[in-house]
Design a protein around this nucleic acid. Sequence first.
DNA 1: CTGAAAGCGCTTACAG
DNA 2: CTGAAAGCGCTTACAG
Lengths: 341, 341
Amino acid sequence: MPVTIHDVAKEAGVSTSTVSKVLNHWTTISSDTTARVNAAIIKLNYTPNARAVSFARKSTRNIVYLTSLGKDEAYRNPHMFDIMCGVHKELTKHGYTLTLVDTSDEAFPGESVHNVIDGKYSDGLIIHGSAVTKDLSKLITEQDYPHIIIGHPGFESNLCWIDPNHALAGQFAARHMLLCEYSSVAFIGGKKTDYISTQRLKGFVGGMYDYGYYIPASHIGYTDSSITESYEAAYSMLTDRRPPRAIVCENNTIALGVVKAIENLSLKIPDEIALLLFDVYPYSNIIFPKPTVIDINVYDMGIQAGDIMLRKLKNPSLFVQSYTTLPILIQGQSTQPLRKQ
Amino acid sequence: MPVTIHDVAKEAGVSTSTVSKVLNHWTTISSDTTARVNAAIIKLNYTPNARAVSFARKSTRNIVYLTSLGKDEAYRNPHMFDIMCGVHKELTKHGYTLTLVDTSDEAFPGESVHNVIDGKYSDGLIIHGSAVTKDLSKLITEQDYPHIIIGHPGFESNLCWIDPNHALAGQFAARHMLLCEYSSVAFIGGKKTDYISTQRLKGFVGGMYDYGYYIPASHIGYTDSSITESYEAAYSMLTDRRPPRAIVCENNTIALGVVKAIENLSLKIPDEIALLLFDVYPYSNIIFPKPTVIDINVYDMGIQAGDIMLRKLKNPSLFVQSYTTLPILIQGQSTQPLRKQ
DNA sequence: CTGAAAGCGCTTACAG
DNA sequence: CTGAAAGCGCTTACAG
């Protein structure tokens, strides 16, 4: 038979209320009693029944992480799981648990959310941006349910969200290029309709402009993010009569195409052409020489999401909509070493 | 105020016991009463309080997934998360939830497991093989706690586990090569101490042998799984006086090195040299021509783990130790097309 | 076929 | 500083 609070109370010669108070660190208990109760707890190896606690307390100390969990999602979108790990880390630190809910295979995703909320499975909801629909938004807002969205939803709303600052990452790229004294820099990105690519480009162009450099249209490439198109974009820029001195690649696949073009033209990195990438993942580690990369610490973004969730639980009126996660620069050998730090 | 079972009972004009019985599909309730209760449930939009249910029932309908959830784990080991998604899928289907527990940052991982078990957080434990220690094994075995290990632990035990059959995958590779009528086939693998690589090699060599083909030592390469060493291994085999007609690459990184050697020697795939890889992830999709791959459906392995867990909960004496997940062959253009299917 | 009542293991006003 | 008692929202023998 599992040991209960009654067993502990009997062992310590006190009431169950007193044991409960010791367990919850009430300050009104004498140190003598506290000691006796703790001794009994250790002697009996007592662990409170989490179900009973959560039931009596009317709070679960559990948060639900809502996202798409289909087959191959882990390969397609590992960042999402890295964020999840960050969230988990922060919640665990404060005694909360994390439960997963999938949105990938139901007709109406609101159904499971409705269950989570009305079934009181959790105290709050952390939702990956890709899983947010307008229906969901309405449901959460109406119920005024504690939540935080990771990655801002594609529409205006009163939801709370955080998001990495991709434009700022673009500015970082510009700044680094100028520190390396490259003024003629090209940018090869994804489609014009791609949100992240557009933000990075915007930040980059703006950043260069702030220092007095203007990027001509011929030095901006839009691709479908395939190796083939990126190769072609880079090849044509590099064989132009005024080739760029450096290329910023908006993602890893683009970088592969660009590197291939550079190899085929037998150019030396970084002496003849410099390279800067966004994201470490998934190919930066198979590019030689080791590339200089601007990365986003999404694990840290998960930690922030967890932290905000916890703060919201204490203060339900807390409202957050912000670009919160800063990019970091990882210096490699694909750009000139800086004169001094 | 949330609506409770009492509200439903009052609305339907019955007792709470009766409502509970309808909720739990007891067969003793008249269809007339059932209809009235269901109508009340819909009218009031009632959802049972999961906490109360789990508490009263003394079963949580929750399973804990125990694994390492540190930073970058999602990039290092996405398979683990794919498995997790499979587990989640199967559990959800049967009304169970999945909660995550991290093993990556504690001095004694048994601590959190002890909590999970004694705190009655869940009905069972699914543990990723990499997280299993002897202490943990002892704890679980002593408590006779429902569990299933994914990937067999590195030591003998009475734990229940399932694991993909890597040796069988090796046999598949041999069989496919012979169907393509390649008899001179090389194998480039990881270190001799690598478990998966060794199993795949063993299955491959054995499979070839079963059909009467013997792989000479010169056609077996051991590497540190780096592009450089794989390149060198392939280069030396291909420039040998009796080069292989096909190469089996034990993982994706090795394949990159091998492809590079093939390119540098200007050999044509598959006409001059054929290629077969293990694993789709992470680089098979950047290799041209699209390679023929032997993959393991680890998502499906997660589903199986979930299924076994559920069966164990019904029948605690169920004991499983088996190589359960079958490899699949994905035909690409790096081997001859087969004569007929 | 239905309901009254005990109980799941805690927490928390409230009284002392 | 401590304890008796009510209550969290269900389930489940048990009686009828």
